[in-house]
């Protein structure tokens, strides 16, 4: 959109909020997301190759992280730059519990969700009053500090060498369906949350925090809750990934990982249910394919992020919706 020439046309915020708060549209998004997940669940009937199943599992890991970040950034307007860090925290939580204290992996994963969620709660509480660039910088430095701690506490985490974590099961198909199940569960939970009053509160805070507070929304509670829930879901993904890869390194919390998550959400369309989910698969699978072609995957996707943010603010989902509407009218 050419906001530079037409000041009147720059109400991107208004358009988006109208689109995503109306329940009819979000029901369409939910149905599209479920249909997409069914396709994903059917893929192993055709693809038996361990490598590509692994690629899809990692895509699902990113889909969970992107969805969690979308709840925080897309629906609540809290632009955190630490989603990958919460995955790293979850991964180290279960990894350390399993190796140092002999906790069974399943219990470790539950603990990881709680620990990541609690960290998110505390961080969310601390950064409550910060917005925009201030929030981005604070969460960025939180992310960097956590990564420094993970890679420097060599006695505990073995630093950059990585921590060997016990596996959960050896069958790749088994892992595939664990991730499908978790992704489906979190998708339904996110949809239920957005359909409830809580979803309206979060979006009201995103659109105008002061107005929301005046209308009686408990802004402190809901902002903190969004942080904690998003962090818990990210920690869940990180903990699952730790047992899948059987290795945890500080690289899980790299800024580049956060960059990938942000790319997926922006390309798919922030503040929509189906867009970031589909984009997570699209970006990750395409990037694996581009890696074989010549390794230009990161150049392509970072350029796409800039182009989408500049010209197609509603992402692929917004483009698809626009195309559908035009097709119906004609």
């Amino acid at each position: 959109m050419s906001a530079s020439e037409t000041p009147l046309h720059s109400g991107g915020a208004d358009k988006r909020s109208v689109a995503s708060t109306s329940t009819g549209k979000s029901a369409v998004e939910f149905r599209a997301a479920i249909a997409f997940l069914i396709v994903i669940a059917l893929i192993p009937a055709v693809v038996r190759n361990d490598y590509w199943l692994g690629v899809l599992i990692v895509s699902m890991y990113f889909a969970i992280l992107t969805g969690a970040w979308n709840l925080l950034a897309g629906y609540t307007g809290q632009f955190s730059l630490a989603p990958a860090t919460f995955a790293m925290i979850g991964a180290y939580a279960t990894g350390l519990l399993c190796t140092a204290f002999g906790v069974p992996p399943l219990l470790g994963i539950v603990a990881a969700i709680l620990i990541a969620g609690l960290t998110g709660l505390i961080l969310g509480r601390i950064v409550l009053r910060l917005t925009g660039p201030y929030l981005a910088l604070t969460t960025l430095s939180f992310a960097e500090i956590m990564r420094l701690v993970a890679s420097n506490s060599i006695d505990i985490t073995r630093g950059d060498l990585g921590l060997a974590v016990p596996g959960l099961l050896s069958s790749r198909i088994g892992w595939y369906y664990i991730f499908v199940g978790v992704l489906a569960f979190l998708l339904v939970a996110l949809y239920a949350l957005l359909r409830s009053k809580a979803g309206l509160f979060l979006q009201a805070i995103r659109d105008d925090e002061v107005a929301a507070a005046r209308s009686g929304v408990d802004v402190v509670f809901w902002k903190t809750a969004a942080f904690a829930l998003s962090a818990a879901a990210s920690g869940f993904a990180g903990a699952l990934y730790a047992h899948f890869a059987e290795l945890v390194t500080p690289e899980l919390g790299l800024i580049g990982q956060t960059g990938l998550i942000v790319s997926m959400a922006v390309i798919g369309g922030m503040g929509t249910l189906a867009g970031p989910l589909i984009a997570a698969f699209l970006v990750y699978v395409l990037s694996e394919w581009l890696r074989d072609v010549g390794g230009y995957q990161l150049v392509v996707f970072s350029a796409l992020v800039v182009i989408f943010a500049r010209f197609f603010r509603e992402g692929l989902w917004g483009l698809a919706r626009g195309a559908m509407q035009r097709w119906r009218r004609s």
Partner: peptide, 9 residues
């Protein structure tokens, strides 16, 4: 009239 999306952008 940019409002909310400005910082995110």
């Amino acid at each position: 009239s940019w409002g909310l999306m400005r910082d995110e952008y």
